[in-house]
Computed example of a mutant assay.
Amino acid sequence: MTLTSLFSVAVYLAVMLVCIVAALLAHRDGAPHRHILSWALIGSCFVILMANRIGNIEHQLRETLRAALRDNSHLSYNDRWDLQAPLFVLVVVIALLLVYFAWRSWSRTRNSKRIRYLLAAQIAILAFLPLLALRLISLHATDELLYSGPIRLNWILDGLLTGIVGLSALLYIRRLRQKPQALHTPNHKQRDRHATKARSDESN
């Protein structure tokens, strides 16, 4: 396993743990069941991403697909564009639908920061699907875009999506920890002082 893969596994593990903590705290604080389930599923997705890095599953699958194309008597390996192009278009359409879904869902959650944090994590983990699909399709132009240069676009996108999930989980946890404090407003403090003073006067 390369140093880059090892670093990715470490980051995935950290984000997975944060998501699990978010799920546990959501359960403790009586958050909606869908919040608990969503954070648990998002954390599970990072287990899959870690297994992919450790076992180099994505590379093996891509090589298997290439070998299948070479062995296909009806389709020349050099003509794989005929198969890759429709798949590429499908992935782009799915990505655009995801953007539309994200925009619609985001506009409906203006009054709840917790839901927005969860939604941001859900969108980011779903965005891994078209990214993984593009890497598996392995279109020449796409590969050049994703893997060329000392700092690869693939690393940037992967890190960005992972960071969004991790940051969203941390902000969700922070929001849960602040929730009990919201009940202790200045008005409540003032009432507490009056009640304490009244008890003191009665004792005197």
Rank of each mutant, 00 (worst) to 15 (best):
Gln60Glu: 13
Leu132Trp: 11
Ile42Thr: 00
Ile151Cys: 10
Ile57Val: 08
Leu90Arg: 13
Tyr172Lys: 03
Arg108Met: 14
Ile123Asp: 00
Ser38Phe: 06
Leu65His: 10
Val99Asp: 04
Arg116Phe: 02
Leu146Thr: 00
Gly43Asn: 02
Tyr117Pro: 10
Leu145Asp: 05
Arg152Cys: 03
Leu119Arg: 09
Ser105Lys: 07
Phe46Trp: 01
Glu144Gly: 15
Val165Pro: 06
Ala102His: 14
Ser148Ile: 02
Gly166Leu: 00
Arg175Pro: 09
Gly43Trp: 00
Val91Leu: 15
Arg135Ala: 03
Ala141Met: 03
Trp81Ser: 11
Leu90Val: 13
Arg66Asn: 06
Asn154Leu: 09
Val89Glu: 11
Leu136Val: 06
Ile123Gly: 02
Leu96Pro: 07
Gly159Thr: 14
Ser105Cys: 08
Leu98Ile: 04
Ala120Arg: 11
Ile42Ala: 01
Ala120Trp: 15
Ala85Arg: 15
Leu65Glu: 12
Ala85Leu: 13
Leu97Thr: 09
Asp82Asn: 09
Ile54Ala: 14
Gly166Arg: 02
His74Val: 10
Asp143Pro: 00
Leu171Tyr: 12
Trp106Gly: 10
Leu146Ile: 03
Ser38Trp: 01
Arg177Glu: 14
Ile94Cys: 07
Thr64Ile: 08
Leu119Met: 14
Ala121Glu: 02
Arg53Met: 14
Leu37His: 09
Cys45Leu: 10
Leu37Ser: 08
Arg135Phe: 11
Asp71Tyr: 10
Ile156His: 07
Ala51Leu: 10
Thr142Leu: 04
Leu69Met: 11
Ile115His: 15
Ala121Arg: 04
Ile164Lys: 02
Leu61Cys: 02
Arg174Gly: 12
Leu65Ile: 13
Ala127Phe: 08
Val93Asp: 04
Leu176Ile: 08
Ser168Lys: 04
Ala68Thr: 02
Leu136Asp: 06
Phe101Thr: 13
Thr162Arg: 06
Ala120Val: 13
Leu69Asn: 04
Ser105Ile: 03
Leu119Asn: 07
Val93Gln: 05
Asp71Cys: 04
Ser148Lys: 04
Gly159Asn: 07
Glu58Asn: 02
Phe101Tyr: 15
Trp81Met: 02
Cys45Trp: 11
Val165Ile: 15
